[in-house]
Design a binder for these strands. Sequence first.
RNA 1: GAGUCUAUAGCUCAGUUGGUUAGAGCGCUUCGUUGACAUCGAAGAGGUCAGAGGUUCGAGUCCUCUUAGACUCACCA
Length: 765
Amino acid sequence: MDKAYNSSFESQIYDQWLESGAFTPKVPAKPKEAKIKDNPYSIILPLPNANDPMHMGHALFTIQDILVRYHRMCGQPTLWLPGGDHAGIETQFVFEKRLAKEGKSRFDFDRQTLYKMIWDFVEDNRKLNQFQMKKLGFSMDWTRYHYSLEKPIVDNVLVTFKKLYQDGLVYRDEKIVNYCTFCGTAFSNLEVDHKTVNSHLWYFKYPVVGEKDRFVTVATTRPETMLGDTAVAVNPKDKRFTDLKGKKVLLPLADREIPIIFEDTIDIKFGTGAVKVTPSHSPEDYDMAKKHNLEFIRIFDYDGTSNQNVKNIYRGLFPNQLRQKVVDDLTTTGLMEKIEDYTHEVGHCYRCGRVIEPITAPQWYVKIDSLAKPAIEAAKTGQLKFFPTRFKKTYIDWMENIRDWNISRQIVWGPRIPAWYCLDCNPDIKLNFLDKNNNIVSDFYRNIKDKYSFEEINNGLQSLVAPTNAAFTIEKTDHCSKCKSTNLIQETDTFDTWFLSGQWPLSTLGFNTADPSKSSPDFDYFYPTTVMDTLWDILFFWVARMTMFGLYLTGDVPFKTVHLHSKVTDAKGQKMSKSKGNVVNPLDMTEKYGTDALRMSLVYGIAPASDFVVSEDKIRAQRNFVNKIWNSSRFVEMLIDRLNPKKITLDIDKSKLTSADKDILDKLNKIITSTTKNLETYHFGQASENLYQFFWHEFCDIYIENAKDRGEETIPVLLTVLITSLKLLHPFIPFVTETIYQNLQEKFNFKKELLISSSWPKNEN
RNA sequence: GAGUCUAUAGCUCAGUUGGUUAGAGCGCUUCGUUGACAUCGAAGAGGUCAGAGGUUCGAGUCCUCUUAGACUCACCA
C-alpha cells in the first residue's frame, strides 16, 4: 500500500461499482407480489437543473447516497433514480443573459429558433452535470436516468393536463397576476419575493361631482395607477363619507367620472379612510371591482409601458416615469395634499429582482382545492411523514391556504400548453410574430389576417394572447370543427416547470397516465418511493405539488417520508447561489482533498434542517481522518506481516480474549447498533461523529497501540474490527473504504466481493 | 401582519426519548515521537449551556416570559 491515501483510485473504483451492476436493482417478474416480501428501497433524485454546474447544494446529495448505500448493504433492492430538469424560466433566464452579452434578445427570434438554441445550450451542460455526480461517488442507477423533456415524459404530462381539464380542474381566467415585465411572464405567488421598500404615501384630492370645493382625499403608495382608477372606496361606517352615497368624483388627469363605493374591508384609520380603486393593477381592488361590478381599465401593457387607455401625454411610460409625471401634474394642478414617508412590502421578481407589476392577464389555472384536500389528509394521517416533523405543520398550513395555481408561463423554454385556437373563430387573438423580413408584428388577428398568410404568422410566431372567452380544443385537429378553417394555432404559453416536475416520480417510474394498468414494472415495484430528500426551500414548489399529483393520479403518495435537509451557506451564512457569486465548487474540493473528505465533512456534525457552513478547515480535518483510516489499515497489514502467522482468520475464539479484545468488541457492537439507529432516524451528523470517534480514538489510539505488543492471537479481532468499521464507514466515505477492503482481500486471500455489495454488520450480542 | 427556527469553549458547530465530572473540528499551551499516519500521540487551558422564572429527586435538554438574531409565508391602500 502507498504511504498516503491517493484519491486517484476513485474513478477506477466507480467504474467497478458500475460494472458490477450494484447501482441497478433488478425488478422481479411479478413486482406487485414481490414488493411486500422484498421491501425495496427507492429514492428519486431531486432533479438538478440541467444547465447548472455542480454546486455545494448538489454535493448534499451525499445524504441520499448514504441512505442508499446503507439500505443496499442491508440487502434491500435499492434504486436511486437520477435525472435532469429543463428548468423552464431558470434556464431561459440564464440563456437570455448570454444573448444579452451578444447584444441580442428573445425578441430577435421566433419561438422555434429560440427553443432550438436553448435546447443545444442545455445539451452541452447536461453531460457535464452527470459526470460531476459520478465524481462525487453517487451510486445512482444511470440506466434509469431521465431528462424532463424526453418525449414519453412530456407526453405523459400532457395527458395529465387533459385529464385535469376533463375533470373540470383547468380553467382560463383574466385575474390579477404577478407579472414581470422584464422576464415577460406571469409568476405564481411562490415566485414573488416580498421586499421592504422605503417609499411614500401620496395624498391627493379628487373633486366631488356636483359639489363645489368638495374633495375626497385618497392616500396611495402607487399614484401612477390613478389613471386606471374606476372607483373610490370608503367604509360604510365612516361618518365622514356617509353623505356621499350615490355621488361620483371626477378623476383628475383622466377627466372621467368614477363612483364612490362603500366597502367593509376599508380601514377607517388608515390614510384618509378613502381608497382609490384600480381593479386592473391591484389584487384587492380587483376583488372589490368584481364585487361591485366596476369597470376594468388596464393602463400598463405587458411590456411594462402605459397604453392607449391613458391620454397621449401619459402614454408609453414605465411605471416609475409615469409616477413622476402624475405626481408633478397633480402638484401643479394643486390637487396634491401631502406626501409622507412610508415603508411597505413590494413584490419583486424572484428571478431578475425587478418590481412585479400586478396586472390582469389571461392565464391558465388549476383548481387546487380538491387536489389539496387529500394531500392534507395524507400528512395528517401519517401516510406522508416529515422529517424533521415540524415541517408537517408548515406543509399543512400552506396547503390549507392554497390558491388556484397559475400554471402558464409566457416563455418559450418548456412544453407548450396543448390547446389550439381557431384564428378565424377568435379574431381578437393578439399575435406577436416576426414576418418574413424579420420585422416584429404585433396586432390582433382581425387586423392582419389579410396581410399575412397563416404560415408566415405561425412560422415567425413569438407569442399570442387569447382573450379568456376564446374557444379552444385540447386535441390537435386539421381544421376547426365549427368553421372548417385550417388556421389553428397552438397556445404559446408553456407550463410552469413545477407542473412537469410535480409528476416526476410518476413519469420516471413509468406510470402511464392514460392507462394506469399499462404502467411499467418499475412503477409497480418502487411506487410509492421510500424517501424524498430535498432542500426545504422547495417544499411548496415541488414536494407539495408531487404529493397532489401523486394522490390525484394514483391514489397514493409519491413517497412515504419527506426528509428535508439543511442548506449550504458560505462563511457569512449566505446561501450559495450563482447570482451572488459566492459559490464554492465542490469539485475543486474533491481535487484538493479527495471526494471522501468532502462527503464526510458535509455530514459530520450537522443537525437536521439547520444551515450548514462549508469551511475548508472542516474538509481538511476529514481528509486527515480518511488518511488515518488508510494508514491504520496499512499498519494492520504490516503488523500481520511482522507476526508472520501460520493462518490468517477472522474467526474469533471467545475463550481466548483479553480484556482489551473484549473492550473493543463491546464498543464495536455498540457502534454497530448506534450507527444503524442513527441512519434509520436520519441522524447522519451523529452517526459520522460517533464513527470518527470510535475508529480513531478507540480502535487506533487504544486497540492498535495495544496490539503492537501482542502475538498473532490479536489478528482475528484486529481484522474483524477493521473490516466491520470499513463497512460502517462505507456509506459516508465509499472510495477509501472500498479500496482498502479490496486490498485486504487480495493480501489475505479472503472471498472476493465489493464492499458496496457486502452485508451490513449486525450486533453480535 | 401570521408562523417557524436559532442563542452551548476564541471560531464553526454536535449533544436523538431530561440522568453520573457538557463534547468535536480548527485555533492555543506544554511534553513526547519522527520506523503506520499529509504527522501522530500524551497532558492541559478555555463554557454560571443568552437572561429571568417554573415543572422535577434531577434540565443544555420540558414549560412561560424577556432580549438578540435568522428564515418562511402574506393581495391591506
